[in-house]
Nucleic acid binder design. Structure first.
Lengths: 255, 255
DNA sequence: CCATAGAACATATCAGATAGGTGTGAGGGG
DNA sequence: CCCCTCACACCTATCTGATATGTTCTATGG
């Protein structure tokens, strides 16, 4: 079996007690326990594995770090719905440690969003479309406020609703894996926005175009036109990418 | 800022000391420490944050779970290159808890691989192409052995080299995010293969076709023909998907 | 029948102690 | 003078035991 152990690493060495417990717990959780179920108490597990409660504690903490468990004080640890924040941290780590990491991310994002946009057109629920529409309205509102010059707060909201729009489409695709990954991607993307704001306003002149592009995508999804949705999304992302590229280039030059 | 805390969950409650330390450590690591660097000793961190060593220990364990640190006995914890195994566990959790999770995964995989195949054609290094070729050869060898009927071991190797082939392409794409995600995807895919083998031989008759399809992809990548690489990959995955679909359908019927 | 105060249980965190793995530097041999 | 070796200092692994605090269940009194 491929290494997927807690604390898997380059060196080979005997597993610590805590790691052993963590791995066995992981299997039990993935195999037998649905999200929402709670695991036995620390003392219970401790006696079952014949280790001290503290060792169990460390093992449980590892699984918390992995995003498999949630601990509330005074109650038993609960199995958690997979949470994208753990993956998000990993993505941030990749993006930060690689000069072209952000571009890699955007490159993949384009492919994923072309897909999710088409899928959303094919099978978005009414609620899904409404969520996209809501983001759309937020965007228009903040765009109007941000239009008249200096309004960093509205600009931030504009960007946020931009991300919301795309996230809503990912959700509406009905593909949980896509939704999960996209949600995680939002974190490094948000960060890059914060960084970029130090230099200048991102796409200051492009807000109207962005809103229009979004509208076109939403219309295609509403109409259930898969091909149009894919094309509209692709066009939108292509122009966005160019913006970011030129922006980051100037940003690097400024730094 | 969006919640990306260790142990972030539905409930709101004051962070425990360990969580606080974990979050602050995470920031320090992501901001200041490159992979390979080691963090201060537990005692050191404990005095700095004014908590007991045990609390630091728990915090560190959470980060180990997150895949950000690696602990070796007797030495300081080391910052780790992002490791896909953590994400892989999350994917397994998604796939297992959702009846159509595997299809979602395959759906996304198709989009990602069409992309990575094209990227590989555009910018694969010589070493990258060699890795793909190596998987190709493994595949031919095991296909030959598996051809004459009952040889489950060769069949397993065939499937493994199949995955290797695709993974090598993901690597050759030069996109670290794609490589990372694809590596993680392999785990649930491998699992589904193991499950499927219980019923019948997967694509027993399709091995020759698979090898040929792979060869076509490799040729396109070698030739640097981006469009051909994308098309070949897409065609290959499409037929694979149909196989898996019909296979799982019969598997479900049998169960 | 319902509300509420404890009792019972669970986690959070600390202190202190022992065991055993790692790395380093002093000193001896070549 | 360089290299090897071994003891010691440092570090993590794990345990025991104790206190604090939050949660859940239950029995009792209104």
């Amino acid at each position: 079996m491929a290494r997927s152990d807690v604390n898997a690493g380059p060196e080979d060495y005997p597993l610590t007690a805590a790691e052993r417990v963590a791995n066995e717990l992981t299997e039990i959780i993935l195999r037998d326990l649905a999200p929402g179920a709670s695991i036995p108490s620390e003392a219970d597990i401790a006696s079952r594995f014949e280790v001290s409660r503290l060792t169990v504690r460390e093992a449980v903490k590892m699984l918390v770090g992995r995003g498999l468990l949630h601990i509330g004080r005074g109650r038993r640890a609960v199995v958690r719905e997979p949470d994208s924040s753990v993956f998000a941290a990993l993505l941030v780590s990749i993006v930060r440690n690689d000069p072209k990491g952000l571009f890699d991310l955007i490159e993949l994002r384009m492919a994923m969003e072309s897909l999710s946009s088409g899928l959303a057109a094919k099978r978005a629920s009414r609620a899904g479309v409404q969520a996209i529409d809501a983001a759309m309205r937020d965007m228009r509102a903040s765009a109007a406020e941000a239009a008249d010059g200096e309004n960093p707060e509205a600009e931030a909201r504009f960007h946020e609703s931009d991300l919301q729009f795309h996230e809503a489409i990912a959700m509406a695709s009905g593909n949980r894996v896509i939704a999960f990954i996209f949600e995680a991607m939002a974190k490094p993307l948000r960060e890059s926005f914060v960084m970029s704001r130090r230099g200048q306003t991102l796409r200051g002149a492009g807000r109207v175009e962005t809103v229009e592009a979004h509208q076109a995508i939403l219309d295609a999804i509403r109409a259930g036109d898969q091909r149009a949705a894919v094309d509209a999304m692709r066009a939108h992302l292509k122009s966005t990418e160019l913006d970011i590229r030129s922006h980051l280039a100037s940003g690097v030059a400024a730094a």
